[in-house]
C-alpha cells in the first residue's frame, strides 16, 4: 500500500495525474471523433457515389486496420506531415508535435469511424415522415438538421455512443507506446523502477475498470434525460 502513497516515496499522485491524463485524452479523442463523424456521416448518406465511396473508405479502412498501426503512422509520420504543410507556406524549421496531440488525433480518427457508423444508423432509423414534415413546414435545411433530426438522433445514438466511448477509453492505453504519460505508461515506469509489475499493472486494470464503471453511470443518466417522453 505504501507504493501508492502520495508524495515523493509513493506512486499515488503520479498515477492520479496519469488517470486524469487518460480521461483528458479520451475526451479530446471523442470530440475529434465527433468532428470527423459530422463530416463523414453526410458523405455516407449522400446520393452521390463518389462521396459515398469517400465515406465508406474512411470507415472500412479504420475498422479493418489495427489501432496500433494507425498510432505508429501518426507517431512517426505526424511531424513529417505538418512540416511538409508548413514548408508550402515557407516555414522550414523542425516542428515537433507533442504526444498529447498526436495521441488524441490518432485515437480521435479511430473513434470517429465508429461514431460515423453510429450516427448513420441513428439517422437511418428516424422516420422518413420527420424529414418530409420539416420540409413541408418550410424549415430550412439547417433548422431541419439541428432542430428536428439531431435531437431525435441523439436519443437513438446514446446507447451506441456509450460503446464508442468505452472503446475509445480503452484505446487510449495504446498511446503509451508514444511516451505520453497516461495510466499505462505511468504503470510501466512504476513497474520498472519498483520491479513490481504485477501490482502496478493490476492496479492499472482497476483504474480502467473504475473509469468504465463511472462513465457508464453517467451515460445512463444522460440516456434517461434524452429519452424523456418516450
Amino acid at each position: 500500500m505504501e507504493l501508492l502513497s502520495f508524495g515523493k516515496t509513493g506512486w499515488g499522485d503520479e498515477l492520479f495525474y496519469a488517470t486524469l491524463m487518460t480521461v483528458a485524452v479520451s475526451i479530446t479523442a471523442m470530440l475529434v471523433g465527433f468532428f470527423f463523424a459530422l463530416i463523414f456521416t453526410p458523405l455516407k448518406l449522400s446520393k452521390y457515389k463518389t462521396l459515398n465511396f469517400v465515406g465508406n473508405f474512411y470507415t472500412t479502412l479504420i475498422r479493418g486496420v489495427p489501432e496500433l498501426l494507425v498510432i505508429y503512422l501518426f507517431f512517426f509520420g505526424g511531424s513529417g506531415a505538418i512540416m511538409y504543410v508548413a514548408s508550402i507556406f515557407g516555414y522550414y524549421e523542425y516542428i515537433e508535435i507533442n504526444a498529447f496531440i498526436t495521441g488524441s488525433m490518432a485515437i480521435g480518427i479511430i473513434s470517429g469511424a465508429y461514431s460515423t457508423e453510429v450516427f448513420r444508423g441513428a439517422i437511418q432509423s428516424i422516420d422518413k415522415g420527420q424529414f418530409e414534415a420539416a420540409k413541408v413546414l418550410g424549415i430550412n435545411k439547417f433548422g431541419q438538421f439541428y432542430k428536428i433530426i439531431l435531437p431525435q438522433m441523439l436519443r437513438l445514438a446514446i446507447p451506441n455512443l456509450s460503446n464508442v466511448w468505452q472503446i475509445t477509453l480503452k484505446d487510449t492505453s495504446l498511446i503509451s507506446v508514444t511516451g505520453l504519460v497516461e495510466i499505462m505508461r505511468q504503470s510501466y515506469i512504476a513497474a520498472g523502477s519498483t520491479r513490481d509489475p504485477l501490482f502496478f499493472y493490476s492496479f492499472a486494470a482497476v483504474l480502467y475498470l473504475l473509469l468504465t464503471y463511472l462513465s457508464m453511470k453517467l451515460i445512463n443518466k444522460l440516456e434517461v434525460r434524452y429519452s424523456r417522453g418516450h
Binding site: 468505452q166 480503452k170 484505446d171 492505453s173 495504446l174 503509451s176 499505462m184 504503470s187 510501466y188 509489475p197 504485477l198 499493472y201 493490476s202 492499472a204 486494470a205 480502467y208 475498470l209 468504465t212 464503471y213
Partner: peptide
C-alpha cells in the same frame, strides 16, 4: 471487457 487488452497482456 472493462480493461484494455494491453493491460491484460502486460499482467
Amino acid at each position: 471487457r472493462g480493461t484494455p487488452l494491453l493491460v491484460q497482456i502486460f499482467i
